[in-house]
Design a protein around this nucleic acid. Structure first.
Lengths: 199, 199, 199, 199
DNA sequence: AATGAATGAGACTTCATTCAT
DNA sequence: AATGAATGAAGTCTCATTCAT
């Protein structure tokens, strides 16, 4: 019991550092995120940073992991009851996606932009996995059967299509395109695609 | 008339440098592409490189611009006669996309992975613009009318969805997913989406 | 009387720390020996370490001092009765030296390799001093007189020659040379040298 | 022919850097020798240093190699004609050794002190090899035969004994011992050892 | 007295860019 | 115009030591 305060302090430091990393990436971009910057934002010394994370990479990985958790939690709250129509389900998910993207102060977008350098796959995997489950559940309920492999392909396509279309839209400075219109378009496309019977 | 040889030499140098940049990025990735290395591959000095391009960024931008042209040329060769069914049109375009990605020694994939750092938008814009034209043309022929704005949204969604889904697939090391299956899935999705009447 | 337990505890702590230092150096080499690591091996905090030793250097010095004592004790047990021949005496000492070097888990060798960074002179001095005494005693017994200064020079030469020749041999990875052969050679050399009458 | 100036400049830079490294080690010791210090002493930027040497280690290695060459050259000039007595030969070699040690402003001594961290073996190997040759030559001339293996052991012992005895003497601050006396003692010891017939 | 989290100076190394030749 | 040696700011990471608890 005497060790608690230290553990808490430690946890606190970890949190602080991950937060600082998030802010740093959101504010300056992944390229300009340096360990001194992160430490400064966290209000600690570089040494401390390295006491908790063996490398810059490890720190970013921890951040991504945390985000993956956040996303998972958020995604799990989406309404998936069988009463909801497929279209509403998809529309909700997309609205949720845009909300995440806009809320995070650009963090998610910046990470998605750099998916090949960070382990964004962790987030993407979480999403894919979750949507795969939803899809299975949903189609089981609705008596429509896809071969599992086909469902995996569909979810892969849909997840990536949606993520990057949204990210590109959000990343454009003066887009002529309207977020709602794109959301609706995506919903149309996905709903249509999922509604098709497999060949 | 006396200036001609120099202009030719100049053009030659520009081409050589852009080629070297392309090879460098394809071979070592964007992160490990350095100006000295490009110069070495081009067989010229760094000084010369900076005589023709004010910065590394400018050089890469020029490369992207050239690629955009290449892509445009390739895309224009796609068969768009009104005899071709929509599905075949889309399928051909996607096959073309995968071919580009797999040829080019990974250059396109590497650039697409880093689209936010280079001006990949140039390539994407070219594609979007071209497909928009195709779409307009095609739908005019087929007596189906979308409001232009709707068509723009659709093309935006389709272009980005396709590009990044393909790039992610190509970038995965041991993907369980089959390229042909994904190509077919994308074709299904897009054809279905384009076939939907606007609300 | 109330202070005794603390003094004991203190002595205990000192011992523990020196032991940990020895283990650390033997296991990871002097270069990779860090105060946090020593503390960890000792099962105490760095803070405690600095309560007992003002600096890393002081700690290592204490270790060396302890080793010097150990060596002194070992050396004093060597048989020096006047019945033993000079050659046997030398041979025994050299065998003892190799034994020390090979035992100790490489600690002595590692310290000897770094003699200029630690105060190895303490160990060397102990050896020199002891061998000087032996030599004096021995030569007195055997009616042969060296001027004292000459004896000091001889002992200096012999001690250093032997130590470093042995250490270099032990440190070589794939030496072509055989330990026994070198031991015999050293014995020959030293015996011969000591047997020479001073000029 | 037009390339000559650059090659010379390059060679000049290499020399300058190696020299600076030598001075740095001699002045501040190997431990305090840092790439910034070396660059400063050389009057160039760190970047230049790394243009010529891939790492600090490589630079020091180059220095050691150069010293090995110097030593080899010096050693080859020692008089080895068969008219010279064994004793004179040894005495000359030892005088040469002390001269090197004293002349180099402490550089050789500092490197010898750190033999296990730098590739001092290169220098030691040169010495061993050379003395082995001298020994073979000498003993052939004088009709005395050692088995080659025995000669190798002897040369190994002698070389290391001499080097480290000299270095320790030179490294002692207020030694009671006289350099000449030690030189003579070493000469006695070695001459005696080499004069012994192999068992 | 003990703890161990925090510090921060300083080490090595890279690379876009410049400029004397 | 071409060259490529030289630059130096900036980045990542280590570790002896301190000090609040």
């Amino acid at each position: 019991m005497r060790k608690r305060p230290q553990q808490e302090r430690s946890r606190q430091m970890v949190t602080t550092l991950i937060d600082a990393t998030a802010r740093c990436i959101a504010e300056r971009g992944l390229d300009n995120t340096t360990t001194p910057h992160i430490a400064e934002l966290a209000g600690v010394s570089v040494g401390s940073l390295y006491q908790y994370f063996g490398s810059k990479e490890a720190l970013i990985e921890a951040l991504v992991e945390k985000l993956a958790d956040d996303v998972a939690r958020g995604v799990k709250r989406l309404p998936v009851s069988s009463e909801v129509s497929l279209r509403d389900l998809v529309a909700t998910a997309i609205r949720f996606g845009f909300a995440m993207l806009n809320a995070s102060n650009g963090l998610y977008a910046e990470l998605a932009r750099n998916w090949h350098r960070v382990q964004t796959q962790k987030v993407a995997d979480v999403l894919q996995q979750h949507f795969l489950e939803i899809a299975r559940f949903y189609f089981l309920k609705h008596y429509r059967e896809y071969p599992i492999e086909d469902l995996e392909v569909r979810v892969f396509i849909i997840t990536n299509s949606t993520i990057f279309t949204m990210v590109r839209l959000v990343s454009q400075e003066n887009s002529m395109l309207n977020e709602d219109a794109v959301a609706e378009g995506l919903t149309d496309m996905i709903t249509g695609y999922l509604g098709q019977s497999s060949k």
